[in-house]
Design a protein around this nucleic acid. Structure first.
Length: 853
RNA sequence: GCCGGGAUGGAGGAACAGGCAGACUCGGCGGACUCAAAAUCCGCUGCCCGCGAGGGCGUGGGGGUUCGAAUCCCCCUCCCGGCACCA
């Protein structure tokens, strides 16, 4: 059907909403009818030009200062989502700003391309995981190019490439040789659905982080990395991150590491010639310990039960406990169960015999797996004592309440003064802690100790799509690491992912069979692959020299670029990825491979992108995809909308923002430039004072916006650019022409370029420049233009603003008062009242304080 | 329970370091242009009283410090994030 409207005359893309509207009249129109602003023409054109000039390649030579801008690399699960769009918009703004500030910038990109989703997709599609993975990588790469991100594509990497995971395996062997990778039995988290073990960090509320299945415990022999050996340094080195990382992230890591100070105390078992060590943070309550509890999995528990004649009870309890899921275990909180082992531990200070129990409220993984129980001062112990009829004895008297041991239901776990504690009576609890610990140490019955909540990092995965653990199991030689020369241990090209009983690699006998590197006899490869967080724990090093096949990273290049100057990424990686990377960096440092101990000097985390208050998802029907926005408005609008929405660390609700509004502004800016360049000549035809006002506005904006960029406050930076654009518009309307306008528009483009690079580039060229805007130096504010000649001073009477006056800067109080008293409204409020005092804040405010008498 | 962060117009948010609360944007209302619509441009837009000049109230609630508090102090409510049978 032929439209009765004339066709849009403006040269623009067919997706322009004007056209779309004619085709589909019911459709709510976007703003895309702007004369002169056609992102669908501008954006590809400049992307091509940048590529042709190799503009974003990081130069290894040259003597400009270097800046490593890194954004967390994506996992290729389909196309980029809105979260990626925001995150990379931030990362790209950081990188482009660094360029403008004169740095040589490294802004690389790659993919975290190993992982379980590829395997699940492969099972559904009966294809190799690589197929799905690399197809998604290409999709994401294409969208990134449309977004116009200034990546150095020549350094692109994928963790699933053998050329990369060869060095992930090298890293594993480095840790192994240093004794920081070990195989151990442990009660581990097992996801029955994904049929693999999980790291502690991947279990959320007793469920699998990935698939939400209820996690159970299994005792298996697995590979661990000894991150706990670095716990103290992971805490201590936060000192150097404090000013540069979000407090929130450091706080999360501190919580996660969970350092607690206390003592290890030795308790001798009455009926056996042995001693069990317990960890406590409250050695001051030792006189109140009335029983003793072991974790059911404690290595000595069964032997003690045997000695106490409680074997049957113990076995039954252990069996019951083992069948519990984590969730069931937690559900027993408050109604403690456990079993008496028939033996007694001697309290080293009171000499009393304390019954020994096994109960699963004591965890084998924490402390020593054994505790002294002080029911009066620990809620869990009190619950247990009440359930089992055990004695409660108050030994720390809190300052404000009277405790009754017989009836108390809430343990007093706070401060107080010692009672019922022999020689320690009347000591404040903190002093008693130190004293009792010291006395025990002197007698050999204990020592000060620190325990961490952090566990060693479980890295074995019984999955296919990951880096194989480069170890051979030989009957004679035991564990034999694969020699470095034989790396990488590559994945088999064909794989059956449907094997139910064993992991995919174990199901491939040809792959498993290998000659022992040590003795040559037929042996078996380790069939586990590594947690993908191992892959991502060192990728920032690989970007320095991604093509080297003889070393994981070129030491000189690492020296040139690292540590990362500015790392950006999602808060969801506050613990896992960031903690692992910090650990690996420290380990490689200690092994002499790096000369720094923290990989990321500065960190900024962006918030999430929501839609209607909820996470976007296809099933929820609130999914907005970057491509849709790109199609309608282009990359600059999408990027700028994200950055304008609010502080970058806050969540964005897409329902609250307006890409149409952003698009309108870019169109307006574009028209402003055209209006200026078409206004003819560079003659200052306008009012000289108005021109000077515009120049002051320009320089004030430069100064303020620069401060904003330094603090990642892009939302306010954009607001200030908008305000300057309004000022330019007013100036043009007021007849101002020429250099003042040119200067203002130039500044806007250079400042806008990190956030909306295509339109800034286009307008920069329309303004008469021939080189790329990326090569233009960041504008500097002229201090002389930051000072006002006159200022508007509010006048208050008794703290309430009654009027305002304009005074020259530096005016005296006398001048100000004189002028203020003549203001009609001020005079009115002062009439008949006595001025008791005048507050004069030079160049800011005048306040008459009146006395009513 | 412990640790951390919040609460400002209809919405997102702004306010250096205690000094005109609400920048900038979205939305809304009115006007110009148009046969009409879109787009564009101009103006208004915290609430209440008032024709107006102007006045009162106002940054989750209550108290305090101060000439002056969104901002500092104390108490409280609610929201978000993390940790949590961790001895």
């Amino acid at each position: 059907m032929r439209s009765r409207w004339p066709p849009c005359r403006v040269r623009h893309h067919r997706r322009c909403a004007y056209t779309a509207r004619r085709d589909r009249p019911g459709r709510r129109t976007g703003a895309c009818v702007a004369r002169g602003y056609d992102p669908h023409e501008i954006e590809p054109r400049w992307q091509k030009a940048w590529d042709a000039a190799d503009l974003h390649r990081a130069d290894e030579e040259g003597d400009r200062p270097r800046f490593y801008a890194l954004h967390m690399f994506p996992y290729p699960s389909g196309d980029l989502h809105m979260g990626h769009a925001e995150a990379f918009s931030l990362g790209d703004a950081v990188a482009r700003y660094a360029w403008a500030r004169g740095f040589e910038v490294l802004n690389p990109i790659g993919w975290d391309s190993f992982g379980l989703p590829a395997e699940n997709a492969a099972i559904r599609r009966r294809a190799h995981p690589a197929e799905w993975t690399y197809a998604n990588v290409e999709t994401q790469a294409a969208t990134m190019r449309r977004m116009g991100f200034a990546f150095d594509w020549s350094r692109r990497l994928h963790t699933s490439d053998p050329a990369y995971y060869k060095w992930t395996q090298w890293l594993f062997l480095q840790l192994y040789h240093a004794g920081w990778a070990y195989r151990g039995d442990a009660s581990v988290n097992w996801c029955p659905n994904d049929r693999t073990v999980l790291a502690n960090e991947q279990v959320i509320d007793g469920r699998c982080e990935r698939c939400d299945a209820v996690v159970t415990k299994r005792t298996l022999t697995q590979w661990f990395l000894r991150i706990t050996a670095f716990a103290e340094r992971l805490l201590d080195d936060m000192a150097q991150l404090e000013a540069y990382w979000p407090d929130r992230v450091l706080n999360l890591q501190r919580n996660w590491i969970g350092r607690s100070e206390g003592a290890r105390i030795v308790f001798r078992i009455e009926e056996a010639d042995e001693a069990i060590v317990a960890f406590t943070t409250r050695p001051d309550t030792l006189f109140g310990a009335t029983f003793f509890v072991l974790a059911p999995e404690h290595p000595r528990a069964r032997a003690l039960a045997e000695r106490g004649g409680a074997t049957a009870d113990f076995d039954e309890y252990l069996d019951q406990v083992r069948r519990r899921t984590e969730m069931e275990r937690l559900a027993t909180e408050g109604r403690k169960d456990g079993v008496f082992l028939g033996v007694h531990a001697r309290n080293p200070v009171t000499g009393e015999r304390m019954p020994v129990y096994a109960a699963d409220y004591v965890l084998m993984e924490y402390g020593t797996g054994a505790i002294m129980s002080v029911p009066a001062h620990d809620q869990r112990d009190l619950d247990f004592a009440r359930a089992h009829g055990l004695e409660v004895r108050v030994v720390v008297q809190p300052p404000d309440t009277e405790l009754d041991a017989a009836s108390m239901t809430e343990a007093a776990d706070g401060e107080g003064v010692l009672v019922n504690s022999g020689p320690y009576d009347e000591l404040p609890w903190r002093a008693a802690k130190r004293k009792i610990t010291a006395d025990l140490a002197e007698r050999g019955d204990g020592e000060p100790a620190v325990t961490y909540r952090l566990r060693d990092w479980l890295v074995s995965r019984q999955r296919f799509w990951g880096a194989p653990i480069p170890v051979v199991h030989c009957e004679d030689c035991g564990l034999v690491p694969v020699p470095e020369a034989d790396l990488p241990v590559t994945l088999p090209e064909r794989v059956d992912l449907h094997a139910e009983s064993v992991s995919p690699l174990a199901a491939d006998p040809d792959w498993v069979r290998v000659a022992c590197p040590s003795c040559g006899q037929e042996s078996r490869r380790d069939t586990d692959t590594m947690d993908t967080f191992v892959d991502s724990s060192w990728y920032y090093l690989r970007y320095c020299s991604p093509d080297r096949d003889d070393v994981p990273f070129d030491r000189e290049a690492v020296r040139r670029w690292l540590p990362v100057d500015q790392y950006t990424g999602g808060i969801e990686h506050a613990i896992l990825h960031l903690l692992y990377s910090r650990f690996v960096t420290k380990a490689l440092h200690d092994l002499g491979h790096l000369d720094f101990v923290e990989p990321f000097t500065r960190l900024k985390s962006q918030g999430m992108v929501l839609m209607g208050g909820a996470a976007m998802s296809k099933s929820r029907g609130n999914l907005v995809e970057p491509r849709a926005i790109l199609d309608e408005y282009g990359a600059d609008t999408l990027r700028l909308t994200m950055l304008f929405a609010g502080p970058i660390e806050d969540d964005i609700d897409w329902a609250d923002v307006s890409p149409a509004g952003t698009f309108r502004w870019l169109s307006r800016l574009s028209r402003l430039v055209d209006e200026h360049t078409g206004s003819g000549g560079t003659v200052e035809a306008g009012d000289a004072a108005a021109g000077a006002d515009l120049r002051r506005a320009t320089h004030r904006t430069i100064a303020a916006v620069t401060a904003d960029f330094e603090q990642f406050k892009y939302n306010t930076a954009i607001a200030k650019l908008m305000a300057l654009a309004n000022a330019i518009s007013d100036a043009l309307r007021g007849g101002v022409r020429g250099p003042a306008v040119q200067e203002a528009l130039d500044a806007v483009q250079v400042i806008l370029a990190p956030m909306a690079p295509h339109v800034a580039e286009e307008l920069w060229h329309r303004l008469g420049h021939s080189d790329f805007v990326l090569r233009a130096p960041w504008p500097t504010a002229d201090p002389a233009l930051l000072v006002d000649e006159r200022r508007r001073i509010p006048v208050q009477v008794d703290g309430r603003v009654r009027d305002a006056m304009t005074l020259p800067v530096g005016a005296s109080q006398a001048q100000a008062e004189e002028m203020a008293r003549e203001l009609a409204n001020v005079a009115r409020h002062l009439r008949g009242r006595r001025v008791a005092r005048v507050v004069w804040v030079p160049d800011r405010l005048l306040n008459f304080v009146v006395a009513d008498d």
